[in-house]
Design a protein around this nucleic acid. Sequence first.
DNA 1: GCTCACATGTAATCCGTTACATGATTCT
DNA 2: AGAATCATGTAACGGATTACATGTGAGC
Lengths: 190, 190
Amino acid sequence: MELSKTAYVILGMLRSGRVHSGYDIKAAVESSTRFFWAASYGQIYPELGKLEAAGLIEGVDDPQGERRRRAYRLTSAGERALQDWLGAGSPLHFELRHEGLLRFFFADALGPEQRIELLRTIRAEHERVRDQLQAIEPAARAGCDADGISHPLRTLEFGIAYQDFIVDWCEETARRIGEEQQPATTGRPA
Amino acid sequence: MELSKTAYVILGMLRSGRVHSGYDIKAAVESSTRFFWAASYGQIYPELGKLEAAGLIEGVDDPQGERRRRAYRLTSAGERALQDWLGAGSPLHFELRHEGLLRFFFADALGPEQRIELLRTIRAEHERVRDQLQAIEPAARAGCDADGISHPLRTLEFGIAYQDFIVDWCEETARRIGEEQQPATTGRPA
DNA sequence: GCTCACATGTAATCCGTTACATGATTCT
DNA sequence: AGAATCATGTAACGGATTACATGTGAGC
């Protein structure tokens, strides 16, 4: 691999034409890819410099009043680099870090109530993220209808379903653990 | 937070009593938590030193023949530190990095066949991981039956369902994209 | 004799976040 | 007047991987 993943995030975001500055890119990431690919200013600004030096993007000073601002756009070389990466058969980096699952893995050391409480905490966290995603869905749908760019919306829909999947697993697992604790309380006549 | 997450991985693994050396811990991680929490030798060995210095674990030289080996066990302080973390209400770190989704997010820049191909690649990768997880399931089930430690198995089952969820999403999304491409080919009489 | 599993460690490097530093503009 | 947003950057730090370096033991 030549370019960092952050570089492709920048190239991809700039390609849409709706995003111009480092600040824009960060905002776009926050409201779209953050849930499966984050990026901070500490990565974005240096990477913009490198990409410009490499000729994959082109920047011009574009102050808004007295407020300085640098606007970037893809060069044809940048467009090509993005396309190459998108269509490449190279291995896809995948990584999950889930502290809740890690705790659950060791939860045999906990008491029954604490296990349920842990699952509740995990569930609440994923519900929160799901709600956030749902909040930006209308905007994503509008953007899709406006210029026919459908994949950001599809990705967002995946994100919502993904969070829901984990929420459901938490609920079901909590239910099963509860049943194992008190197997006699179900189906008994009063 | 005082201790690193890797520290808790070590404490948790040692607690089971079935794992003793740094090498053991690494092997245990590879066959269980790796899919949601990885750890390398470069983290494990230094962390073992720190934990011993902090009095949370205790190590003894335990050579097997001429082959040197250091066996660790939890101290009561270590047991407490683990319990505290497991039962704490502290925020649970969650992070996903998925290059396939990142590409899919930008896939409006691709042609129809390439989009399908991308989804196929993502699906294949998750199928591969799922198959790996399924391969270790019998061992996990045996371990559960043997000493009643059920959460590693439950976590593994989550992992399999999780990979399946993504595989299903890939299939369904590929189908939907295909339908949008050729809406007229369905339901037509020959 | 060879390869694989067991076993321990360090150094270089990379990737990424957080905190800091600075300043203009817009909204309330 | 003050807060939030727009805007750009850097420095310090932390977490983690990879590669390297070394050696034993068991099985084929």
